[in-house]
Amino acid sequence: MSLIEIKNLHATVDGKAILKGVDLTINAGEVHAIMGPNGAGKSTLSYVLAGREGYEITEGSVTFDGQDLLSMEIEERAAAGLFLAFQYPVEIPGVSNTTFLKEALNAIRKTRGETPLDAMQFLKLIRAKAKDLSMNDEMIKRAVNVGFSGGEKKRNEALQMAVLQPKLAILDETDSGLDIDALKIVAEGVNRLRGPERGMLVITHYQRLLDYIVPDVVHVLANGRIVKSGGKELALELEAKGYAEFGVTEAA
């Protein structure tokens, strides 16, 4: 059964059409990658799926795990199992990582009808997950993303993903701002979450990330549409040839 089915999705920002008919289906257990030039609509697609305000859906539908995703509130989407790993994780001074993640996890558990974790259970869980990502206690106690380096912010996204255990993880340019070591740690974190019941959508400009998170399917998004799909070899091809054949030229 398909985990998410995006049909003919059109979206505008300030009256400007960005998505112009995106069709994409991801089944449970699959990892899809979306590649494309700057301005193709990659981030818009991720924000629209997560429910960010400021985007107008003018046409199309998105069915997520059997539900009409576009009619759901942002937090309902998260509770239903959709997770967006942000390209630019937001800093929240005054709110500690632990408080934030505990609120998030227990809110989601509550929606699922599960009992909330108490402080001790939660601490045990977050410590175990943090250790996998080489994050120490100090990092999980700090205010959310405040004073974090680019790599630490992305590890923090991976930590949240590991704690919240989403059904579909959307990784928006997760490789941006990462050196190779940080990239490996984050990619390992993501790979640990791969499983038969989980889907992933990896959005990236460069092929590099896909060496570590190897996709089942690669799509090319250009001018607001998916213009080509193929296997993982498509990513290598794009890296070599650029996006010229899709009517886009840009400096590499």
Partner: peptide
Amino acid sequence: DEDQMFYLRARGISRDAARVLLIGA
């Protein structure tokens, strides 16, 4: 901050709870 509100809600925290967190902070 709208970005902070979106980030918190995108992790499953309700609008009201997110506001309480941010006002408290």
